[in-house]
Nucleic acid binder design. Structure first.
Lengths: 208, 208, 208, 208
DNA sequence: TATGAATGAGGGTTCATTCAT
DNA sequence: GATGAATGAACCCTCATTCAT
């Protein structure tokens, strides 16, 4: 399609995966050195600078890359499933495959990228950013439509509140893992996230 | 009073408040320098090292300090209120007073403290940590008891799930603000947090 | 007087002298590391950055500092002496004292500072630059006046040509040392410079 | 011809010319990257290493190449002209053709090559060096002979002083351009160089 | 006690050099 | 032979920490 601009060279993807692996191991942005990323990606430190202009850009691009991966996963879930709960379950189950969807890594990364940095992230490739955000909002709308169609979402709830619940579930998961020391890859964690979303959004007399 | 260990000198509190002010301004842990904390606290850089052994300790102690403040606030809310919703509303409303309860700052700080660092945080004053965690769990138990007593919490829900929901609400708030660019101090944000918790925990036929 | 702005802290002067020492040893700008300057100045590397914002600034400021020193020396020579030859001899003799007048170092430095860099040098503190340049031109005018008054300078010669001769003598000295491997501190070198200037500028029937 | 050792492959000459072009643009040695030379020469970066063992060698050989070119030019001038002034004028005029005789570039290069480097330059191909230096001295002797024969050079002057004057004129030109921001290719600059040499070397009663 | 000038270990980045294609 | 992607040593600069005042 026209999304070709989003394709990354194999070296870039190696860098992203290396970064995700580090993030998955609980390494924090501020403690990740360029040398670490290079080692994790299996390339020389200098090689990274052939593909990225700075450490900052590596992180920024990796965040967007992961987000795109996640969106792809979510869109696929929405094509195959019809109910909100099934979509979410399918989506979260897919997060198991760390190679494809390093969600914990993304969440960790986004949490760890300083605010000041995010400015750069936004300025860096505004068109990429815009495209991703649009895709994100479309997916959200589609998800809420599905939930409302099946009666899983209380019609009285605003889009904003629904969004708030979903984001809290996604990122709260990371927080929860931190406090209670559970592994983000623990299926129980993901089940709780789905459950929380469904319960919080369900109509008052929801029986399901 | 065996809690004496918890009292802090005015200089220490100045350091904490300075750090909270920085965190509230959106400054990220990794971009906060010791000089920044000293300036924000209105003391010399060297003075900080009279009270703390390292930057790491400043952050760690500040996190615990903020947590203790929050717990005090929550305990107070639970004494004055009876229903889960009222307790939460009272608690979250108190978060307005940034001087007393820099919640956004805490959330931001905890999110920004690297995992590796948290090890230090745990090893540093294990007794302090234990005491705070015990107090945290007591408060949680008390909160859930209140909710179950009033029928606001579905009896079928496990403690673990309830905790998950509350943590997601607390920390998801930060995430939500980041994504949707809302201000954490926005009352609407806090209302949504309370609403989400209540809806997610309510029994299936909950009418309130 | 009002020239107070030009005073430098002792650490700054130490840095300049360290740099001059390195330049005097024949070290070239591009091979001088910040660590070298720090070592030569007898301070820590980090200390330099308390007084200068970059290596670039160290060099720039050092060049101007040396230029000011030289100008002071020249102005003094012009007060004490009357004939062009005597002024030049007195001036060049003073260049012996490397601590006070590191001329070879200046010449070497100016030669070694890349053109691109000189842009910075000019943009950095334009007022300092302007003041120094004005002082330089005044000294030149005074020198030429002296030479013309005493008949040592051919009245037919333009200011521009006179300037060209003097600059060639000053900087050619460095070049000459490089090619013939003489030491810049060799008195014979300085005698030749004076001789060359006087001969090139003298009237056609000059007998002196 | 026993001078066969001096012939360079087309790729080598391309590298030299590329370097000269960069130097002519005012680029300084320390800011010229191997990639720049390769680009300016129109070859791949790796290709340079087929013909030179290091960046250092490229510079060294280029300096000698330019020197040889200049010497050829000077020898030709001495064959066609008889008076010192005519030789110099003819010689300097030829410097206009930047392709053949990039004098400004040479001067700039020699000035910019660090002393440490010059050691390498001397050790690198001692035989080449010796041959060039001998040729240089022969040319100098021939030039001085011409000047003395025509009475343009004061018989009292030593060879060393004459050499000093000529070198100062050559390299002072570069210095002069730097200070007064004139272009080295400006004919006025070259006229002043000839004038300075002739005036400085002329006998006391010289009328020409 | 309070300070900030001094420090140097460590990080991000550059670029000369290599080598598989 | 010609190339440029990959490399890592080495540099400039930052900033947590120390210590003389």
């Amino acid at each position: 399609m026209t999304e070709k601009a989003n394709t990354c060279s194999s070296k870039e993807i190696a860098a992203f995966q290396g970064l995700f692996a580090l993030a998955r191991d609980g390494r924090h942005y501020s403690s990740i050195k360029v040398q670490d990323i290079a080692s994790a990606a299996g390339v020389g430190k200098g090689t990274l600078y052939e593909y990225f202009s700075s450490k900052e850009e590596i992180i920024s691009r990796a965040v967007f890359y992961a987000l795109e991966q996640l969106l792809g996963r979510l869109e696929q879930s929405m094509q195959e499933m019809t109910t909100l709960r099934c979509i979410l379950e399918h989506f979260f189950d897919g997060l198991n495959d760390e190679r494809v969807l390093p969600f914990a890594a993304l969440s960790e990364l986004i949490a760890s990228v300083p605010l000041e940095q995010r400015k750069f992230l936004e300025e860096h490739s505004p068109s990429d950013k815009e495209r991703t955000y649009r895709r994100l909002q479309q997916a959200e709308q589609q998800l809420l439509s599905a939930g409302r169609r099946t009666g899983e979402i209380d019609p009285a709830l605003t889009d904003r509140f629904c969004e708030y619940v979903i984001l809290s579930a996604l990122f709260g998961q990371t927080a929860s893992c931190r406090i209670s020391r559970a592994k983000a890859s623990d299926p129980a964690q993901r089940r709780m996230a789905v459950e929380m979303i469904c319960r919080a959004l369900r109509p008052r007399d929801n029986r399901g």
